[in-house]
Design a protein around this nucleic acid. Structure first.
Lengths: 248, 248
DNA sequence: TATAGTTGTCTATATCAATAGACAAATTTT
DNA sequence: AAAATTTGTCTATTGATATAGACAACTATA
């Protein structure tokens, strides 16, 4: 699709080798190369992008370092295919249910938790007074042992006292909320954006520096419209795409 | 929110000045700086990010060039605030309807059109045979004279012969489809991803090199489920966020 | 008016990024 | 076995990136 013959920009603060590495990743995710297929030779890539062979080699070296490619002297450079997860989002989306069939194992790991006063934004979203105590959870979503998301979520500390323990134990938001008498909930709103991953997310999701993350900011509510959870989730764009179902 | 004290990565192919420029943009979009507010002095920013003052100056120079900031010798550097558009997407979203109240003028400009054989992906999405003729439209969405999106859309050439003329004339997909007897349609599926903007999109949307775009790939269908349109849209992440309504 | 704070400009230096060319090492093809 | 193809390594050169320090120009404040 887009980016067939799309070229490379110079002098923009992003090095050529990184741009080319991004293009190769994009190609892999977009299905330009089959599983275990050989990349075009370095000279061919250099010609295609109008750069020196050594620049292409820098890009490939970075991807080899990240475990995306494997280079073999005399034979070629091969794709270690990691296809992108397609993550459904909608009113009833849960972390684990949507990924059925795509992965064999998934859960949410609790990285840290804290109780803090609510900022104005969070207080408004949760229907609390500004400065009211809220519990903040820092979590990482994992599928088949690979990190696929990083989230920061806030709950009313009074109503959900001890939810961090439930999360650590069950590895599931849905299961944790059940302990507080909430058997079903809906996504009231979701706002989507994208940016470069910050240093913390790079570490938590084992990303290459400069990686792009999709960001969702969502409010979950009970069936009668009571807000219970405010969450900002980050998904690495190279590993995950978000899918909106029609009538969800 | 995220990225309060988040630091800067070195030797990753993205120059420090661009990373800092991105952070400042993020801060503006995230509301860290009020309208027309002064940025912290260069020395303060240099300390915060652990870089030399000249590096901060490079970042600021790029943003001044892009019209995001205004620097005044002896006084400070000021934000020329451009708040982000919130773009709703859902089953019934139309380009113009969703932005009501946020902008005064919006339309879609037709940049170019072509008739070509359908790739496998597009043929499948539109329910055509591979290689069947399809019309490709390259369009740009504009709000208040500013480009806010760039899209590539495909239609069955047989059924929608001449739709490029209708688009050029009406500046609206919805109005154009009306001429072919389609008064209503739904978004069957939407897939979201993010990447760096390619060279063409940089020019078309007047973006700074290295900008991030949100990408949606959607199939629109008639009310009885017949696919009529396949579209890939790109939104600059610095100007646009995507909003999912609950029951849409 | 004097002082402090801020942006603008200049010189200098070290490292990274990119280009260029040559050849070695390994593999596949002829 | 020989030739062609492809990745790996080396040297060298140029321009962009980043750091460092000094001082000028301008603004606001004491």
């Amino acid at each position: 699709m887009a980016g067939l013959a799309s070229s490379i920009e110079r002098r923009n603060g992003v090095s050529l080798w990184r741009q080319i590495a991004d293009k190769i990743l994009q190609g892999i995710a977009g299905g330009d190369f089959a599983e275990n297929a050989a990349l075009p030779p370095e000279m061919a890539l250099a010609e295609r992008y109008g750069v020196n062979r050594h620049t292409v080699r820098s890009a490939i070296a970075a991807l080899v370092q990240d475990g995306v490619l494997r280079a073999e002297q005399g034979r070629g450079t091969f794709v270690l295919s990691r296809k992108r997860l397609s993550y459904p989002i909608g009113a009833r989306t849960r972390f684990s249910t949507g990924l059925q069939g795509q992965t064999s194992e998934r859960h949410i790991a609790l990285l840290s938790s804290a109780t803090e006063p609510a900022s104005r934004r969070i207080a408004e979203a949760l229907g609390l007074a500004k400065g009211a105590a809220v519990i903040r959870l820092e979590t990482r979503g994992e599928a088949d042992g690979h990190p696929v998301s990083r989230a920061t979520t806030w709950f009313d500390a009074k109503r959900f006292a001890g939810i961090e323990a439930a999360m650590a134990e069950t590895g599931s938001i849905t299961a944790s909320l059940k302990r507080f008498g909430i058997n079903d909930y809906l996504r009231q709103s979701t706002v989507l954006s994208a940016r470069h991953a910050d240093a913390d997310d790079l570490v938590a999701m084992e990303l290459q520096p400069g990686a792009i993350v999709l960001v969702t900011v969502a409010v979950n509510v009970t069936l009668d419209g009571q807000p219970i959870q405010f969450a900002e989730s980050r998904f690495p764009a190279e590993r995950v795409e978000l899918r909106l179902s029609a009538g969800d």
